[in-house]
Simulated scan of single mutants.
Amino acid sequence: MTDGSGERPLSVCITFDYDALSLWAGMLGSTNPTQISRGEFAAVAMPRILTYLRSHRIPATFATPGHTLLAYPDIAKAIAADGHEFAHHGWVHELVSLTDEAGEREVFERGFEAFEKVLGIRPTGYRAPGFDFSPRTVSLLQEFGFSYDSSFMGDDFNAYYLREGDQASPTQPYRFGGPVDLVELPASWALTDVPCFEFVWGALPGLRPPSAVEEIWRGDFDFAVERNPGGIYILTLHPQTIGRGHRWLMFERLVEHFANSDNVVFETLGAYAARWRSENPHDKWCATPSVHAPATS
Rank of each mutant, 00 (worst) to 15 (best):
V255H: 09
R175Y: 08
E279M: 12
P33N: 13
E198L: 15
Q172N: 09
S139Q: 13
C196P: 01
F258D: 04
A128C: 01
C13V: 10
S188H: 11
G178T: 15
A271C: 06
I242A: 04
P205T: 15
M1R: 13
L10V: 13
T192R: 12
G202V: 04
D19H: 05
H67G: 02
P33Y: 12
T68N: 02
A78F: 03
R8F: 01
R218W: 12
W248Y: 08
A159R: 02
A42N: 03
S37I: 10
S37K: 14
K117Y: 08
D262S: 15
A80T: 09
F176I: 02
A80I: 10
A76S: 11
T15I: 08
L98G: 13
D222P: 00
G245S: 10
D82N: 13
I49R: 00
V255Q: 09
S134V: 08
F115T: 02
T171R: 08
V255K: 03
T268R: 11
A71G: 02
D283V: 13
G230Y: 07
L23P: 07
A187R: 02
P33L: 14
Y174E: 04
D149N: 14
P229C: 10
S30A: 11
V107K: 00
A114Y: 07
A114N: 02
I79F: 02
N263C: 05
F221C: 00
P179D: 03
P229I: 08
T171S: 08
Y233S: 06
S37M: 12
D19C: 06
G230N: 06
W189T: 12
F112I: 11
Y18C: 08
S211N: 06
G231N: 05
P209K: 13
L207M: 14
L53E: 01
A43D: 08
A45P: 04
L50R: 00
H56Y: 11
V107N: 15
L141H: 11
D181V: 02
P135I: 07
S11H: 12
H88W: 06
N260K: 14
I49H: 05
Y272P: 14
S22R: 07
A60S: 15
E104M: 04
L269I: 01
G231T: 07
G230K: 05
L70K: 13
E106L: 14
F221A: 04
A293P: 09
L185E: 04
G270Q: 09
M1P: 07
H282Q: 04
G231S: 11
V96I: 14
H88Y: 06
K284T: 13
F258Y: 10
G29R: 07
H257W: 02
V118R: 00
W189E: 13
E215C: 03
A187E: 05
V183T: 07
V291A: 06
G177P: 07
R110N: 10
V44N: 11
D155S: 12
I232Y: 00
L191H: 05
